[in-house]
Amino acid sequence: MIQNWSQETYIKAYKFAAQAHQGQKIPGSEIPYIMHLSFVSMEVIAALNENKEYDGNLAIQCAILHDTIEDTNITYEQIKTEFGAAVANGVLALTKDKSLDKHLQMADSLQRIQQQPQEIWMVKLADRISNLQPPPYYWTREKITKYREEAIQIHDALKDASNFLASRLANKIENYQSFTTHPTNDK
């Protein structure tokens, strides 16, 4: 089977991200954050089996590095130096602009992602697939509902990048509905 990505590229990005996110945990858990990056990259790798025409190295590097600018001290310039402009631009597009009001950040991010190659779109789809796990116990019903609505927004904006990921996300969104109807810590 011919692969459109290399293990060496994956390992280089994984080591970089592991160092950058060292000590971070998935919110609401004791699970090392690198696990989230593994889940996102796994989704992208699975989609690349269906989308052989894509630049798998670009997609996988951005999947692994997608939170480095947003959640660590790593800069755009560092990513550009280490991985090239295409990866740095993809990671930057996937980074929320925290100077904007929170309710504007997703639309802004999606608009910037849509200006990138579709490999970057795949990363955002995979990221939300990975994040649609049972919500942290402290989330209110309102927060859970808004998070699901954001997932629908992501799906609608980026679904054309990958039928495989779009279908996976649609299924996760449907299943996530159950968390909006169960009792939560509404305050």
Rank of each mutant, 00 (worst) to 15 (best):
1 M>N: 12
2 I>M: 11
2 I>Q: 04
4 N>F: 02
7 Q>I: 05
7 Q>K: 07
9 T>I: 15
9 T>P: 06
10 Y>D: 00
11 I>G: 04
12 K>R: 11
13 A>Y: 02
14 Y>C: 04
16 F>W: 05
17 A>E: 05
17 A>R: 02
21 H>E: 13
22 Q>R: 14
22 Q>W: 08
23 G>Y: 06
30 E>N: 15
32 P>C: 06
32 P>Q: 07
33 Y>A: 07
34 I>W: 09
34 I>H: 08
36 H>R: 03
38 S>H: 15
38 S>N: 14
39 F>N: 00
39 F>C: 01
41 S>Y: 01
44 V>M: 08
49 N>Y: 12
50 E>V: 11
50 E>Q: 13
56 G>V: 13
57 N>L: 05
59 A>T: 07
65 L>H: 05
65 L>G: 06
67 D>V: 01
67 D>Y: 01
68 T>M: 07
69 I>N: 00
70 E>C: 10
70 E>V: 06
71 D>W: 10
73 N>E: 13
76 Y>N: 03
77 E>L: 04
79 I>C: 00
82 E>N: 13
82 E>D: 12
84 G>S: 03
84 G>Y: 01
85 A>Q: 14
85 A>S: 13
88 A>H: 04
88 A>F: 05
89 N>D: 15
89 N>Q: 15
92 L>H: 01
94 L>A: 05
95 T>K: 00
98 K>P: 00
100 L>F: 10
102 K>G: 01
102 K>H: 07
104 L>R: 08
104 L>D: 09
106 M>L: 13
108 D>C: 04
109 S>T: 14
109 S>M: 12
109 S>E: 12
112 R>A: 09
113 I>H: 03
116 Q>Y: 07
116 Q>W: 05
116 Q>C: 11
120 I>Y: 01
120 I>T: 03
121 W>N: 11
122 M>Y: 10
122 M>F: 14
123 V>S: 06
127 D>H: 00
130 S>R: 03
130 S>K: 04
132 L>M: 05
133 Q>T: 09
134 P>C: 04
134 P>Q: 08
135 P>S: 05
135 P>C: 04
138 Y>S: 10
140 T>H: 02
141 R>V: 13
144 I>A: 02
145 T>W: 04
145 T>K: 11
147 Y>F: 13
148 R>M: 05
149 E>F: 09
155 H>K: 07
157 A>V: 13
157 A>C: 15
158 L>R: 06
158 L>H: 06
159 K>E: 08
163 N>S: 14
167 S>C: 15
168 R>E: 08
169 L>V: 11
171 N>L: 11
175 N>Y: 10
175 N>H: 11
178 S>Y: 06
179 F>C: 01
180 T>N: 10
182 H>N: 14
187 K>G: 10
